[in-house]
């Protein structure tokens, strides 16, 4: 019995210029400043490409539908969900992940990361990479956020451990602002 190709059931010819669904295609990104290449089917998510193809496991995967923020990376500098981005869409573009923060800082933690450590802004750390990548983009454009602005921005991330208070303290500290007084006794 001949094996039936599912495409044979559909009379429409595939678009010859499209990347074929069943083939792996070379995707090259600039990951934390270095060119890296891997292979991706068109349906491969950027989050899985980073982790499984390039071995960059710093980026976490939680919900895979854009809700939790664990997978947030910077695409051409802008914080985006890696689980809502295809690897083929990132081809030729710059991707920055949590590994790049210390790499760009002579191998030491950045001031933001140090503040996270000081203020217990993480516990299990699952949400942390995403939050750091969001903040590293957002603080460049919002260098002195108010408490309200910061909490609004953090609403794009779910943290199941910290209750967010330590994260708010860390950001207020690293941006040289007063730490909300009601918060300081919270740890």
């Amino acid at each position: 019995m001949p094996v039936l190709n599912p495409r044979a059931l559909n009379p429409r010819a595939p678009n010859p210029r499209a990347l074929n669904a069943d083939t792996r295609h070379t995707v090259t990104i600039t990951l934390n400043g270095r060119p890296r290449s891997g292979q991706a089917h068109p349906r491969l998510l950027l989050s899985d490409f980073l982790r499984h193809e390039l071995g960059a496991h710093g980026t976490r995967v939680g919900c895979e539908h854009g809700v939790c923020g664990a997978c947030t990376v910077r695409l051409d500098g802008i914080a985006v969900r890696a689980c809502l981005t295809l690897a083929v869409q990132a081809d030729g573009r710059r991707v920055d992940t949590v590994e790049g923060l210390a790499e760009a800082n002579q191998g030491r933690m950045t001031a933001l990361q140090e503040a996270f450590r000081r203020h217990h802004a993480l516990q299990c750390g699952f949400c942390t990479a995403g939050i750091l990548m969001s903040l590293s983009d957002w603080l460049e454009r919002t260098p002195n956020p108010t408490d309200e602005e910061l909490r609004d921005m953090l609403s794009g991330h779910l943290c199941r451990c910290t209750g967010y208070a330590g994260i708010v303290r860390a950001v207020m500290d690293v941006t040289g602002q007063a730490i909300p007084s009601g918060e300081s006794a919270h740890v």
Partner: peptide, 28 residues
């Protein structure tokens, strides 16, 4: 939570995109 397979087209122009959409019909 992974998409089912699909072909992926990055058209060069809007006209390209619309031609591909017309040819792809409901499957595009």
């Amino acid at each position: 939570m992974k998409p089912a397979p699909f072909d992926y087209l990055r058209p060069a122009t809007v006209a390209d995109a619309l031609a591909a959409l017309a040819a792809g019909g409901d499957d595009a």
